[in-house]
Amino acid sequence: MNNEWLTIAMPKGRIFDEAVELLRLAGYDLPPEFEESRKLIIESESAGMRFILAKPMDVPTYVEHGVCDVGVAGKDVLIEEERDVYELLDLQISACYMAVAALPGYERKKDIAPKVATKYPNLASSYFRAQGEQVEMIKLNGSIELAPLVGLADRIVDIVSTGQTLKENGLVETEEMMTITSRLIVNPVSYRMKAAAIDEMVTRLEPVIAKEETSE
């Protein structure tokens, strides 16, 4: 029955490739040419899955509204978006971390409101609040490293995977905030109404993730 199909929201790009690989290792039959498709909706009859390819930041939205049962989303996005979804598994893929960076020699000035540029204003402001510091957020949509270079902000909050981009732009990391990995998220209604399919997915993924982790 079509009803037992799982609709899965996935970010395009690297996370999609890694997540599909995990699902294959978990025994889901996904055709080899899957990743090359340029369609936004791709189906696998044999696995009973329909994939929706979305912008990473939008994945939790599709899942919260129930148009997708399951999603793969970075922890950064989950914190930023605060959607009402179950976070069932840490897939341990696309690992990176969130960090604060500034120009070398940056010192916190006491007299003016410090400015922070980021793609993640919610996440960043709750982080600084927890540190007991009030900062002003400047929301940018990309190339965050520019902000301190041109004087738009004193510091930035962004994802760091290798640190190469920071280095090339002459920025230094001042604080590591948290590690980020991709998570398996589930719509609260699907979690109940499609419990069998979702439980099975979790049970099949768990050993695969554990194995990947120890082999690293």
């Binding site: 009803n3 919260e64 509204h65 129930g66 148009v67 719509n187 609260p188 209604v189 699907s190 109940r192 109404m193």
Partner: peptide, 9 residues
Amino acid sequence: AYSSNLGYP
């Protein structure tokens, strides 16, 4: 309570 037709309780 949930219905399979809707994504919210």
